[in-house]
Amino acid sequence: MKRLQISDHIILLAGVFFMVTPVVLAFLTSTHDAVTIYRTGLQYSIGDQGLSAYGTVLTRAGGFTKEVNGMVMLKNSLILGFGFAIGKIVISMLAAYAIVYFRFPMASFCFWVIFCTLLLPLEVRILPSYEIVQKLGMVNTYSGLIVPLIASATGTFFFRQFFLSVPDELLEAARIDGAGPWKFFIDILVPISKTMIAAIFIIMFVYGWNQYLWPTLITTDESFFTLVRGIKQILQVWVGAQIPDYDQAMALAILAMLPPVVIVVVFQSWFIKGLVESDK
């Protein structure tokens, strides 16, 4: 038994090594200056430069781009993450509430229309989506960035499933207590969905924050760049540079992953519950 346990730990530690090392290396490297990195390769210790690359990335416009610094990108990432998560939760809770708790003629038609959005990821309809957003004049706007991403119905299905698992008697008791549709939603359903809302918020925030392709297309004005979108900019500077700013690139990578990683780790149990129960 004991020997088995040791081999289990070795396998797990190997897995942890594979998952953690790349990011640790990225962080350590970001604390050295670009020339040192270029000469001696990736670094395995904390360097003299400390966290100054982060300061540079956050405050100095023109590190990679000409108009925008890391703070602005951080702000845009937060807007995208929060905007997407909140928008999606509000819209999908309302829709799921209608589908589960109301009897109306078009119910199953509406349900299938929303359902079919699960069939096609944004990536396969990217070109026409871009053209439509362009036609609507929403390029380089926050709404153009956020709203089309909400079109997929994952959140609606999540809440629909949750609402279906709420005991019927709760609505019955509330009706006997004189609660109408709006009162029931606000007084009962939203409060009892709190943990579910938190779980889906984490997943959606991470999803929104990590968007890459869509922001790449929709934001050409640098003042709308997100941190993840900024990576594309690094690459364009990188190609053709003599000594790429490895340190700043890694600092940006760490900055871009830090907020979602912190949220996922801190709210781990909610996040896992949300992920496993929402299926997507």
């Binding site: 008697e169 008791a173 006997i176 709190k194």
Partner: peptide
Amino acid sequence: AMVFQNYALYPH
């Protein structure tokens, strides 16, 4: 007024 099998108390 009704008393339900699973009580249907408002949990929050």
